[in-house]
């Protein structure tokens, strides 16, 4: 297993002093992602998807429960993982630093590791279907779909073993979404990384995922093979999601 969450709860306290309330963003969730596998997480806003993504990335420590990455707890220092986990996040408009050229953004994970970029940036841009010429452009010169391709190139340049895709295609136009979803499938077939694909869109999730976990109100209500979500998922809520497609 590349990633295991076991009985993970994340709570926040909110409200004024004296009337503080404890809110569980996620409650007792368990999930596992095997090598080369894509686990889909589907749920609506407020269902705990984002918290799950942050836990999986090691950005959020669980209040209780255990998280194992590659069989070990997340190291104290983020750098010890550098290059092994990457993410493609939801907002194409803010996914790239507007003051950095595309090439610099793509090369950054290598720079963090102190590795030379060499021809890797050009290769990465080719792999995501943009020419090497895009390296010289600034993000505002790109469309939403192109920016998301750059984010993917940046995430894959260190050949990570695990990638979190958090609403990575949700903000894109329908006709462009399909391009990116196909690209992700192709790249995964080529490089064999494991992925956590998080989205509110069951259609997109079941297209890319091998297995799907359905989240609602901070809990996982059902986990099943993606195939089940084309016909008859067990949980009534999953069926509701399927019907609204």
């Amino acid at each position: 297993m590349i990633l295991e969450l076991d009985d993970v709860t994340v709570s926040f306290t909110t409200g004024p002093p004296l009337r503080r309330r404890r809110l569980d963003a996620v409650r007792g969730i368990s999930l596992a992602v095997a090598e080369g596998e894509t686990l889909g997480v589907v749920g609506e806003s407020g269902s705990g998807k984002t918290t799950t993504s942050r836990v999986a990335l090691g950005l959020q420590r669980p209040t209780s429960g255990t998280v194992l990455f590659d069989g070990r707890p997340f190291p104290r220092r983020r750098r010890d993982l550098a290059g092994r986990i990457q993410a493609v996040l939801q907002h194409p408009h803010w996914s790239l630093n507007p003051r950095m050229r595309v090439g610099q953004s793509v090369a950054e994970p290598l720079a963090v590791l102190g590795r030379p970029a060499g021809s890797l940036v050009a290769e990465a841009l080719e792999q995501v279907g943009l020419g090497a010429g895009f390296a010289e452009r600034y993000p505002h010169e790109l469309s939403g779909g192109q920016r998301q391709r750059v984010s993917i190139a940046r995430a894959l340049i260190t050949r990570p073993s695990f990638v979190v895709l958090d609403e990575a295609v949700s903000a894109l136009d329908v006709s462009v979404q399909a391009q990116i979803l196909n690209l992700l499938k192709d790249l995964q077939a080529e490089f064999g990384f494991s992925a956590l694909f998080i989205s509110h869109d069951l259609g997109a999730v079941r297209y890319v995922a091998d297995r799907i976990a359905v989240m609602r109100d901070g809990e996982i209500v059902e986990t099943a093979d993606a195939a089940a979500f084309y016909t008859a998922p067990e949980h009534p809520y999953s069926r509701q999601l399927l019907e609204s497609l």
Binding site: G145, V174, S175, Q177, A178, K185, D201, G203, A226
Partner: peptide
């Protein structure tokens, strides 16, 4: 036709999506 065909929800299991090339 392209719009109807490119939505992932419309794809049958195992069938590859046919995206519309280019952008709006």
């Amino acid at each position: 036709a392209a719009l109807a065909g490119s939505a992932p929800a419309a794809a049958a299991p195992g069938v590859r999506l046919r995206p519309v090339p280019g952008r709006p």
